[in-house]
Amino acid sequence: MLSFELKNMLDINIWALLGTGFVAGLIGAMIGVGGGILMVPMMTLVLGFPMQVAIGSSLISIVINACTATSVYIRSHVTNLKLALLLATTLVPGAFVGGMLASLFSSPVLSFLFGILLLYVAYTLIPKKPRKKPGPAENIEPVREKEHASHAWLDGRYHDPAIDEDINYQAHHPGIGMLIGFFSGIISSLLGVGGGAINVPVMNLLMKVPIKAAIATSALLLCITTMTGSLIFAHNGYIYPFIVAPLIPGIYVGARLGASLAHRVRSAVLIRIFVVFVAITAVLMILKAFNMLGK
């Protein structure tokens, strides 16, 4: 059981939480990562909240962020609703298991796992040398009528204004996608992150869903997964309304501003700075896990 008790909101600075949400939303939208990657370390390392409280608060904040993104994507018809619902059938149980595990693990264990996750995120964000040939992301395989007939109902189609073309695609290997989705759900709820870092590559590289559709479908998946995780954390008493309340308007405003600023700032420079920041945060989280940071 946590030693943390919130007797009075006056002990907690509303403005600090509002700022935390804002910064997480702003940078997250500019870089293209979920707010949880930033929010959880900020809440634990800077504001001193226990990991479980930070994770629970992060999850419920991601719900509104992901729903906002979904409301935009779905109106432009990029989201593959059926694929999202199918993958959610394994992500939801995964999120349930992850939420339960989070209450069993101690704060240091969660800090350590979060540090490892941050190192992975930093690695994936390191700019790679451009490939000479287009990767699987750009290779949209033509629709074959006989092949994949069993999951033809997952077909997707959207209009890409960038190339002014209608894109038709089929989702491959839905079974493997669902299996990986289960583990993605566990990580999402266990560490309070969306899980987009897993869902998008799985859909894009493995299931051959075009990157734009994969990102949009992943946003809808995040809504459902983080909602399930939030329920478990609320049930276990880790969600405090007056901690979550300032975070939500903060992350919402930050994400909207970040999205509008994203194309005005040199993203390559921003990502390099962010990689260094994430790597340092990862080390701090691991040090915190071994109680080497002090108070």
Binding site: L85, A88, L231
Partner: peptide
Amino acid sequence: ILLMPVLII
């Protein structure tokens, strides 16, 4: 907020 994903489904 928690009901939104349920509404979608």
